[in-house]
């Protein structure tokens, strides 16, 4: 089982995406989709990081809601900053010490940070276990780091139980 279908979720996603993109779901298209769904996960096995499972689907949904709401409010904030005088902005780098060690979950956190309030994740320092973040306007780096930790990292740890 694990040799033929190493990642059932990914296989399902590929098949679904293929059928969505196909002009019409004919038998031939289903067959091609099935072939790709079986072949691609096996061929790309070496590139995938260790497997993580969603342990708490409800917490995951709540985090998704928080992130989506933050994306919208973040953009209104960035809108004001972009249109205002640039001299008033104080950009800067700061580091967020990470408690997550799983590479996939850390990447997820980095992506969330990039999409939300005035911050872009620049680098993940594996040795020190820290996320390098650049902020468009920052007054208190420690508070910003603490906010990222409590708002996104803690729920992520809860979701994946790692």
């Amino acid at each position: 089982m694990s040799h033929v279908l190493p990642r059932p979720g990914l296989s399902l996603l590929i098949l679904g995406l293929w059928l969505v993109l196909a002009p019409a779901p004919t038998t031939g298209q289903v067959l091609i989709g099935l072939a790709l769904a079986v072949a691609l996960p096996v061929l790309t096995r070496g590139f995938w990081p260790g497997r993580v499972r969603v342990r708490r689907p409800l917490a995951a949904l709540r985090l998704l809601g928080v992130v989506l709401a933050d994306i919208v409010t973040a953009n209104l904030l960035v809108a004001r900053q972009v249109l205002g005088p640039p001299e008033r902005l104080r950009p800067g780098f700061f580091a967020v010490p990470l408690e997550i060690h799983d590479p996939f979950v850390a990447t997820l956190l980095g992506s969330i940070v990039s999409l939300t309030p005035g911050t872009v994740s620049v680098d993940i320092d594996r040795e020190r276990g820290a996320l390098q973040v650049h902020a468009l306007h920052i007054e208190d780096p420690a508070a910003a780091a603490a906010q990222i930790k409590s708002r996104y990292e803690a729920p992520l740890k809860e979701v994946f139980a790692c």
């Binding site: 994306i71 973040a74 953009n75 960035v78 809108a79 972009v82 640039p86 902005l89 950009p91 990039s114 999409l115 005035g118 872009v120 620049v122 650049h134 468009l136």
Partner: peptide
């Protein structure tokens, strides 16, 4: 187009 430094310019396209 108008922000003065590369890392600041990165914010516009990624989010907005």
């Amino acid at each position: 187009a108008r922000l003065p430094d590369f890392f600041m310019r990165l914010h516009g396209p990624t989010k907005a």
